[in-house]
Design a protein around this nucleic acid. Structure first.
Lengths: 266, 266
DNA sequence: GAGTGGTCTAGACCACAGC
DNA sequence: CTGTGGTCTAGACCACTCG
């Protein structure tokens, strides 16, 4: 029952991490965690604090083990879990690195639209608009913003094989993206998350997508050259940081006659 | 370079498992695997062979380690990977069990439609038809069947909160499901995969889903009480066995005004 | 060669389930 | 009490990378 609170003779893992221990004595729900999970949390906090930049190497397992006063195997298990969540990348002979948003990651982890022939490509993007303004209620809700917060809104059309197939609306808090509206349209890259990382030190770690079928509205009909009321696949995504804090709200409406959204289950 | 082929003094892991070793000497692409992966494959083969039934307990780590002549930690790592794929379930103090299709698994791993209010429910099913016939080309393609194979086709309407929202077509090879058409309609349960397991010893281990937006056809309009041409979310699923052999082809067309398909990314 | 992560082993101890 | 999986440790050796 008292397991895993303190294992090493010395406090091990200091940093005020055992935050759940109460002095109230009785029947407290035990939020004790195995050592390797406590280590994992400590490393996660450092990731969230940007202690190391994306792409940078973490200290070696041995060094971390010394710092935390645990065995190397325990650190390994913590790092393995983080690697399983794609938060760090491990490379034999080189080291453990903070995960980065590469084109490969965009394609295989964050973009699930695949051609009906099985082809996987990132669509080209054409910017329509990029401007800031007071956040609307829905935007505040999705991004957990206060009532006077401002946001930056980006709209673009994305094409696969030179055919426009997606109308995309993106919304991010202006506070975390100072100067985004000043960026020249040509500067806004196709894969935004790497851009967020490099330009604004904002790291997207997770995302949740919600899909519906909708009818194309007048603008979508025009932009995608569709018949009136054509069915579109709406993908609404909320992208989250390391602490699951919402960072970006995105709505993509996709013409899926020649492509589909692919998902693997177990 | 020669690592991991044989580690223990005795051959360890017999069963003719090192199938990739060629007598041709030079520059063979090494399909050497770490020991724990070889162990994992052996256990996987036993799962595929139905050596143990779903829900049954596997031998303990210690016993498996003795059988395979490796250390318990190596078996543990193999089992951990299998547990990560939801192919086995580990329970402290009890044992390791072959994964089963429970209502919980259906709801959280195989059914991604969620109410817009966040509610997760399995929809009720009403059977429309269940009959067998010669497999059509598309069915043969999806299920990897020969040209004279027969299939069983099931159609049903599924309702959330007493509102019909899904029209579902299911197709399985008749050969693996002898007597399915004789089953009384009342006997066909809402969650089919548990039924497949228990009645036909057919185990669904994975699945791939492809989503599109489509327009409701006349029948769907009637069954779901929709306006003509209403947009529907089409979910096409191919369910696979342990060896990734296709077992079921399913197409669900969903009315998503009050629900959505939920997917989490990393 | 030095440093990194990856594998394998062995042993100790813990938590949990069930008789 | 016994047997199970879960954690933690320690040490040996391997493969890979880079200077």
């Amino acid at each position: 029952m008292l397991a895993y609170a303190f294992v090493a003779q010395t406090p091990a893992v200091d940093e005020a991490m055992i935050s759940g221990i109460e002095q109230a004595g009785i029947e407290q729900a035990p939020n004790f965690q195995p050592l390797y999970r406590q280590i994992r949390l400590l490393i996660l906090k450092r990731l969230a604090k940007n202690t190391w930049r994306p792409g940078e190497m973490l200290p070696s397992e041995t060094k971390l083990a010394q710092q935390f006063r645990v065995s190397q195997g325990t650190v390994r298990k913590a790092l393995d879990e983080l690697a399983g969540q794609n938060l760090v990348v491990r490379q034999q002979g080189k080291g453990t690195f903070v995960a980065q948003h590469t084109p490969h990651r965009a394609l295989f982890h964050f973009f699930h639209l695949v051609g009906d022939d099985g082809s996987r490509k990132l669509p080209e993007s054409r910017l329509i608009s990029c401007a800031s303004g007071r956040a609307e209620p829905r935007e505040r809700e999705c991004l957990a913003l206060s009532s006077r917060a401002h946001v930056v809104r980006i709209r673009r059309v994305r094409s696969l094989d030179a055919t426009p197939v997606i109308v995309e609306s993106i919304c991010v808090p202006a506070a975390q993206f100072q100067g985004l509206t000043d960026a020249s349209p040509a500067e806004l890259p196709n894969t935004l998350y790497a851009f967020y990382e490099q330009r604004f030190q904002v790291v997207i770690a997770h995302a949740v997508e919600r899909l519906k079928a909708v009818s194309a509205n007048a603008e979508e009909v025009r932009l995608l050259k569709l018949p009136r009321g054509a069915p579109l696949l709406e993908i609404e995504r909320i992208a989250l940081g390391h602490e699951h804090n919402p960072i970006e709200w995105r709505r993509s409406r996709c013409h899926t006659d020649n492509c589909h959204y692919l998902n693997e289950l177990d």
